[in-house]
Nucleic acid binder design. Structure first.
Lengths: 194, 194
DNA sequence: TGACAAAACGACCGGTCGTGCTATTTTGGC
DNA sequence: GCCAAAATAGCACGACCGGTCGTTTTGTCA
């Protein structure tokens, strides 16, 4: 059964995720989050044991949303190259669709040098995603769409690079052709993999 | 003439740059920086008008260091493909050589959604670097090393992507093969450009 | 050596941080 | 419609934030 508390918790996490994508997981303050959600600081604290706990739950929430919006839909569609292409397009849309960009990317560069459970959770999530990408590429190889010489993990690496450049060009440099450049690069990567 | 004040200012900025690469430009606190440099907070404030001023000067310092260590040395070496390759290797070394990774990358994902003069300065520095890359590629085209069909700015985009993926794999995922993967990707990019 | 400016200091400002503890309100099952 | 449980608010705390102040130390040059 879903109680009222569950709902507010969900609402808080939604807002927190968006906020963290702008000011960072560390920069996010309880007071600001309380203001944003129209609650008191102590009201928030009934839902989260500590700020670190909140950060962990933000990452978990982002993980769920990403799986739901990007990864899972492609599992019910085509296999092989089509799925890899679908993953890429959904990934771009995921970035476009939220204020502050992809929370994983933002957090990754923020926490890369700050050891602790939050960094660990983030690295685990990122590792999972990279694995998922590589698996999709492996299937494309098995289906004969991609060359059997192809290294799926190298493909995932380069695909991630294209996404990161897209993120930077789009968010910081305000380049209107960011998505175009990303697609050109990705097409080149796919073509070279056949 | 270089006064004592100039020297300490230099020392402070050095330390501040390293610190900011770890905790971010916003996360960097005056108190912590004072502790790290063995000075008092007010002693610091003799050198910087405000925290924002400090952030701007950190970016400026990073820009100088980057130009000195990465960009300029390649101008005195080979032109064309050789220079582009040298830029890439020096770029990787620049990332490896400092705690916290490349300060520009860290700052870029931190500030991309926080308008203001600091973000502007950062975007300008990044734009400058992308321009420099594209110019080096254009020279390689003119020299006949790269195809005349090649779009230098697309090359710069993809090169940046490879670097960003390297940064992520190296810093967050602790992947030992990060540099190898970066070189494989870059070689593929260069080969496809000939 | 004495004068004067540059540099650094410690104390302190109002404000916000994360986080407790306790009281009050709201909710949902009987 | 009662009552326990769940949810939220109120309030206070010590620490630290960016920043200012008047003062003291240090370095430079006549």
């Amino acid at each position: 059964m879903v109680t009222k508390g569950d709902e507010t918790r969900e609402r808080i996490l939604d807002r927190a995720m968006a906020l963290a994508a702008v000011v960072g997981l560390e920069g996010l303050s309880i007071g600001e989050l309380a203001r944003e959600t129209g609650m008191s600081k102590s009201g928030l604290f009934a839902h989260f044991a500590s700020k670190e706990d909140l950060q962990l739950k933000i990452i978990e929430t982002a993980r769920e949303r990403f799986a739901r919006d990007v990864f899972e839909p492609t599992l019910r569609a085509t296999r092989g190259e089509g799925r890899v292409r679908a993953l890429f397009e959904r990934w771009l849309a995921w970035e476009r669709g939220r204020v502050g960009g992809c929370p994983f990317v933002e957090a990754s560069y923020e926490l890369d040098d700050r050891p602790g459970p939050v960094r660990d959770a983030l690295a685990a999530a990122q590792g999972e995603w990279v694995d998922g990408l590589a698996r999709a590429v492996q299937i494309a190889i098995d289906e004969g769409h991609f060359s059997s010489d192809l290294d799926p993990r190298q493909f995932a690496y380069e695909m991630y690079g294209i996404f990161l450049a897209y993120h930077l060009y789009h968010r910081l440099l305000d380049a209107e052709d960011a998505a175009d450049r990303a697609r050109v690069a990705f097409d080149r990567l796919v073509s070279a993999s056949r």
